[in-house]
Design a protein around this nucleic acid. Structure first.
Lengths: 332, 332
DNA sequence: TTGAAAGCGGTACCAG
DNA sequence: CTGGTACCGCTTTCAA
């Protein structure tokens, strides 16, 4: 049951491999009669072209890399769906790299993708610096996902307006009557975290307030990290009456902490998340959060990538911002 | 900034490509002095071997395919983690195919993976028949994930004992005093669903009972499907006092329905899930469920695959069952 | 409308 | 311990 190659197809059809290649690619006219004959043989032999060999020659692997910090965060699987929505119909497939948010793994995956000659990458980098990305960016189209810094050299950027989304949320908290609003973010210097934190500060500033450092804690983007941060915040004498979190997982952790301390939410403490993952509406109280349309974001990434991959000339750099909005539930 | 190839490295190091190849692969001794010289040039030029070209020659792509019905179901991302735990250190990477549980997509991905010459696949097939898989199984090592039928021709099987797990759960329900226990499953003829359903019937039979067809409903493995099925079940005159669900998502949907009908859980209705995804402990009441150790399952898949990929001779077919257990929370 | 042959970037066999 | 070279399976000039 060895695999059949083009040579065998050609032989059986009584034509040259060149012709077989062309009926497959349609890159040059082939007489209808030979065309059908070749097609028949292909069918009969169950011939399947070898993407690798083709890629070696054409320098296109039809593969893209998706690098995410934590596939366990439901946001990212949805992004992958969106990405596939646009990439798969175009013949591309994605290799998913779950880096666990560590710098070593991010770098390792980046290198791996380079040796695999992926045609492009969409990355949600956490620890990577501009310098880390630069060399890759010039080798293959890069789409950065998340609210990183703008930087044309690093390729397209698809974000969901994290700064605005968070600002909007904080404004809502203020209007609602919260007096001391705190912020729990992700790891420092990570795009999404920084941008959202900026939104937090901006909204406060616009309202003529300032959040002291004691009201901002940064940890991980996880439930545990959220709980721990909240415990610190809530055990202080002048505890906040609202906590805006950089994502839903963190907010769920805050809910855990509040429950443990017997604080009522939103009575004693208002809590807000970010992303609107499924779990946000499952917890009690249901989370008031910023909806981050993951699938749309993924689609936008795919479109951005595709644009570059199929571009004749050099496409101009783009930043795509997907609109987001607040969904009010019970936690604030 | 064109990519440098082995030829250039060889030239600059004053050796043949053969030697460069061998310092890289270590497949034959190279004088220490030349070795370091070559390594230096490689470093200096930033040479990166081309996995594709290598694969074309060696017939190994160092890539495996992971085919899942719904990456949005948190169970699968965890499986991927486990898979990567063992595959990535061995140099393999996974292409993730989210098929949405449709037969067309499952077939399409299977074909795609074949043309990409993946070295192996782990699949959680939903709609695929034995026949669909057979041709692939002889072309590349296959590991089936989930509680499908045993079938040596189709490669290894990694399951988490769905039949036993469900039987255990139903037994618990019975001991607990439930008198009419119903079952909500996934799509008919899908491995996980069928096996779990078998467990349900077995436990009932052992207790000298029989579940009429009216107590078994099959839908999708989603929250919505669960809600809909529950609505049917609960609006009947003699509604069940317990519902065992084929997964947590379904159970969460049942909870939705119960809330809408003002039924108290577990007072009026006991509800149990399966998988123990994060959300299971987030909902109110927290789900009593069967823990399906996703990461372990993923690891087992990886190990099974690796065994075949690195096997000298023909490894015997294996079935690996990962032990599972019940976690009792509030819903039953 | 069709073929022949030269690669793409490596590996591996056969010599030396 | 090191080279030369055929070849993996396909695409793509160049020539007919």
């Amino acid at each position: 049951m060895a695999r059949v190659g083009m040579t065998e197809v050609a032989a059986r059809a009584g034509v040259s491999v060149t012709t077989v290649s062309h009926v497959l690619s349609g890159r040059r006219p082939v007489a209808e009669s030979t065309r059908t004959r070749v097609l028949q043989v292909i069918e009969q032999l169950g011939y399947q072209p070898d993407t690798l060999a083709r890629g070696l020659r054409t320098r296109r692997t039809m593969t893209v890399g998706l690098l995410v910090p934590d596939l366990t965060n439901p946001f990212y699987p949805m992004v992958l769906r969106g990405l596939n929505d646009v990439l798969v119909p175009a013949g591309y497939h994605a290799i998913v790299c779950d880096t666990d948010g560590t710098r070593e793994q991010e770098l390792a995956f980046l290198r791996e993708m380079a040796t695999r000659r992926v045609d492009g990458m969409v990355i949600a980098p956490f620890q990577l610096t501009r310098k880390d990305l630069l060399s890759h960016a010039k080798a293959v189209p890069l789409v950065r996902l998340g609210d990183g810094p703008l930087d044309a050299d690093l390729g397209d950027l698809v974000s969901s307006g994290g700064e605005d989304g968070m600002a909007q949320m904080v404004r809502y908290l203020l209007e609602r009557g919260s007096r001391r609003v705190a912020y729990i973010g992700g790891p420092r210097h990570t795009g999404p975290s920084d941008r959202r934190e900026a939104g937090f500060h901006r909204a406060l500033a616009e309202a003529g307030r300032v959040a002291g450092d004691d009201l901002v804690i940064r940890g991980g983007f996880t439930r545990d990290a959220g709980r721990e941060a909240a415990e610190v915040l809530l055990n202080r004498a002048d505890r906040p009456d609202a906590i805006a979190c950089a994502n839903d997982l963190i907010a769920i952790g805050v809910l855990d902490a509040a429950r443990k301390l017997d604080l009522s939410v939103p009575g004693d403490l208002a809590v807000t998340g970010y992303d609107d993952i499924d779990a946000a509406s499952l917890v009690t109280p249901a989370l008031t959060t910023v909806v981050n349309p993951a699938r749309e974001v993924g689609r936008a990434c795919g479109e951005a990538l595709l644009r570059r991959l199929t571009a004749d000339g050099a496409e101009p750099y783009r930043e795509v911002v997907i609109a987001n909005s607040i969904v009010r539930r019970d936690s604030a």
